[in-house]
Design a protein around this nucleic acid. Structure first.
Lengths: 257, 257
DNA sequence: CCAAAAGTGTTAATATTACACCCATGC
DNA sequence: GCATGGGTGTAATATTAACACTTTTGG
């Protein structure tokens, strides 16, 4: 799907037939979500936030630019996880349906129709996943999006092309590296309780983690610092707050620069 | 680097600015090797076997085609592992030097000069690694290659662009999945002894594996079947031969079809 | 004092590592 | 028989999972 700042001359400004699709994972209240924009046009077009790669930027920079345009936040954790390169990967059917259903062309549809020769090509797409704190990131929709909403990862809307499969592969990749790369903290606020972290793990892996063993395992990693207690007013023992300890010099929350 | 069967109209037959580079791992006598072709031209141009993606084939099929063109064998274990997408990824300096050093143009150089506008573009490249049995695969060089030789992974020739980095990333990816995906057997003949398998692991991970514990770990995986003994004539106990047990229906040696 | 939920310790089970011993083979 | 290298068993250790108990908090 096109970014908002596409120039008129797609052919020279962007790499042809190569795109980036981002699976933006968010977390809140024990559930894992994915950010899915819906295009403004008639016809229920849901698709992952994606875009193209400028001639003058690296693929990591492109993913960052594309994503920042959608979420309005900087310093996102972002990583490539897989390339999708089947021969049937094109927007032909979706775009033709879109143009047909929206024949009373406004500017965007006219733009698409005029650039159809470019957009309906077969595309190879690089999948990136991103991890963000849903309570901080308020997605700012662009003018091609009707909505930009969070959907539970187990209850996604019907999406174009193979975007559902991309989400599935992204989740599998996330599970493989979650605590190996110490990236879970990107999904939480700066300060969090051990229970919040545990519920996050349970949401990602879709299975329970025993409370005490989880605490021991996480603390043995030696990457958390214990802060003050969090008094909620509940009539029970107050949990500690923790914070991810920034290592000297490294920037775990932004591996791409 | 171009394949041998490139048509004249690169622009329509292939995806522009997108390439595939293959890290072909081979194993023999306790050492891990990588297949590196050297171009026929003056100037010592070493680079990974790579090529482009046809409009009508998936990226997996493209990698398979490219690799089969170089090694002459089918049914290779092959998997994508990472995309390389820096802005400085182009063949400009290498190709300009090549054309300069080989000014007395034969057909190939003329072809390159005529297609320079295409070849010197910035390229995004998908890295694949392949695992082959060096005793079976006899690389058949194409007419653009002076040599196609195996080089020890710790003693590679100086290679163009970022191909050395691609090899390094490929090796790291291989280590991450070697026994999780049960693919080590692709580097060995059909029948092998436990010692041969252990030496292979030691070559890949560059560290020793205790003999008896290694045997137990591998046998506990339950994927090997023990065959007859292998009598070498040495005055010691004869080791058993093993074979990777093909599962019902699955094809571990060829995950891409 | 009580219920609820957090913190922590203790044991059991399992996996990993280290060490030792025995066995087959050809000379 | 003997040296060599392969197969296998056992003990020590480390890691993980299971279970139990204590502490804090507000009503």
């Amino acid at each position: 799907m096109p970014d908002t700042d596409l120039p008129t001359d797609l052919n020279t400004e962007y790499i042809r037939q190569l795109s980036i699709d981002c699976v933006v994972f968010g977390y809140r209240d024990g559930k894992l979500y994915v950010l899915v924009p819906e295009l403004i046009f008639r016809g229920d077009f849901y698709g992952l936030p994606g875009g193209f790669i400028r001639q003058t930027e690296s693929i990591d920079a492109a993913a960052r630019r594309i994503l920042e345009g959608r979420t309005g936040i900087t310093n996102i954790y972002l990583e490539q996880f897989r390339v999708f390169g089947g021969t049937d990967r094109n927007n032909r059917s979706a775009l033709e349906r879109l143009v047909e259903l929206n024949a009373d062309a406004d500017g965007s549809v006219r733009w698409m129709r005029d650039n159809l020769h470019w957009l309906v090509d077969r595309f190879v797409s690089i999948g990136y996943y991103a991890l963000v704190d849903m309570r901080v990131v308020k997605p700012s929709k662009t003018d091609v999006d009707a909505t930009v909403d969070w959907y539970p990862v187990d209850n996604l809307p019907k999406m174009i092309m193979d975007h559902r499969e991309i989400v599935g592969e992204g989740l599998l990749s996330l599970r493989r590296v979650l605590d190996e790369k110490l990236i879970a903290f990107n999904l939480l606020p700066e300060k969090f309780t051990m229970k919040e972290l545990r519920l996050l793990y349970e949401a990602v892996y879709d299975r329970p983690f025993p409370r005490n063993n989880f605490q021991k395992k996480i603390l043995d990693l030696g990457v958390l610092e214990r802060l003050e207690k969090k008094y909620t007013g509940a009539s029970n023992r107050a949990p500690y707050l923790y914070r991810f300890r920034r290592e000297r010099g490294s920037e775990p929350s932004a591996p791409l620069s």
